[in-house]
């Protein structure tokens, strides 16, 4: 949960930016304005349809038809970003920034591209540059705070989100991220307060309900935790078919309570919604293991480990299950992989 949220936020910021009107600078360059406009419309249409590679091609053609229309570079950067072609996304945004170094939108597009490419220090620099122009710019503050959070600069991130909250008291992103940071620091009561604040701003914030569930779980109130996870599930069940977190979180809670059967149900729902989540498959595998379905358990754990080779939990459980089954060779191999991974992450943390 912790790692994915900021990326999600980054994409959200990007999408929000795309809707903003961009200033058209006066550049005298020969161009075919009609063709450029048509290709741009086609590109934006493809973007809306989720055909990102086609969008990038059309937008490049738009730019080629009229190089002076350089605001297209921002759309092009976004198309490359969504197509997960980060170098090209960065390239397009950089070209825009070269042409308009003072434009906040350009800096933000570039910062987003850096963030997605995991060039966090560069992303931080560009967000800072945007804030020099407009210190209260909401998207820039969110981006800066998220990058600081990812860099582990939690004090800085806290201060950035507090600033966001001061300037934009009705923006739910501020208290939400403050809540995440407090949760990360095990300051559960403070986290809970922030998520409750999110709900005052947006009573249908499923993310706030989900995180409140986590807070109650950490505070030992499993009844309230269950209730909040269930509310989050109700809110996302139809309207947000890709959001899997409350299903997984409830599965994890049920596993802690020893109810493997129900846990398996929620874990498989989570995995259906997001088949790319290693955690979802881990939780499903763990539940299956507790139900004594060891073969299926191993399948789920292998899928989990394949989805995220840096995720140690499935390897540990695999080792335990193989050991139970008397397959000491496979147990040893899984546990050795787990041990090496743990040592690496411990060193990285230091």
């Amino acid at each position: 949960m912790v790692l994915k949220q900021p990326v999600f936020v980054a994409v959200a910021i990007l999408l929000a930016l795309s809707g903003q009107a961009l200033a058209q600078p006066a550049v005298a360059a020969p161009c075919n304005l009609i063709q450029s406009s048509e290709r741009r419309q086609a590109g934006l249409e493809a973007l809306r349809g989720g055909r990102y590679a086609a969008a990038a091609t059309a937008l490049q053609e738009s730019l080629d038809a009229c190089p002076g229309q350089h605001t297209v570079l921002l759309d092009l950067s976004r198309a490359h970003l969504l197509a997960r072609d980060f170098p090209r996304a960065i390239g397009a945004a950089e070209r825009f920034v070269e042409l308009e170094p003072g434009a906040v939108d350009g800096r933000l597009a570039l910062a987003n591209a850096y963030l997605m490419a995991q060039r966090l220090q560069d992303a931080l620099r560009e967000a800072g540059a945007a804030l020099k122009t407009d210190p209260a710019q909401a998207s820039a503050l969110k981006l800066k705070g998220n990058v600081e959070y990812l860099l582990g600069q939690l004090d800085n991130a806290l201060s950035t989100f507090v600033t966001l909250l001061e300037h934009h008291p009705n923006d739910e992103e501020g208290p939400y991220m403050l809540g995440r940071i407090y949760f990360q620091e095990s300051r559960i009561d403070h986290a809970k307060g922030q998520f409750e604040r999110v709900l005052k701003i947006n009573p249908k914030s499923y993310k706030a309900y989900d995180n409140l569930g986590l807070c109650y779980q950490a505070l030992g109130d499993t009844e309230m935790a269950t209730r909040h996870f269930l509310t989050a599930i109700k809110l996302v069940d139809k309207d947000h078919p890709d959001y899997d977190w409350p299903y997984a979180n409830l599965a994890s809670l049920l596993l802690d309570q020893g109810d493997a059967e129900k846990a398996y149900g929620f874990a498989s729902r989570a995995a259906n919604r997001n088949p790319n989540s290693a955690r979802n498959f881990y939780l499903g595998g763990k539940a299956l293991g507790k139900l004594g379905k060891n073969d299926l358990c191993i399948n789920w754990l292998e899928r989990s480990a394949a989805l995220d080779p840096n995720y140690p939990e499935p390897l540990y459980l695999m080792g335990r299950v193989y050991s139970q089954l008397g397959n000491e060779e496979k147990a040893k191999a899984a546990l050795e992989k787990f041990r090496v991974l743990k040592e690496t992450t411990s060193r990285q943390r230091k």
Partner: peptide, 20 residues
């Protein structure tokens, strides 16, 4: 877990989440 079973599970959990 099909939708019906899922709905029943949700119901059971909601009940369980109420103070006993």
């Amino acid at each position: 877990m099909n939708r019906r079973t899922f709905a029943l599970t949700m119901l059971a959990l909601e009940r369980a989440a109420r103070p006993a």
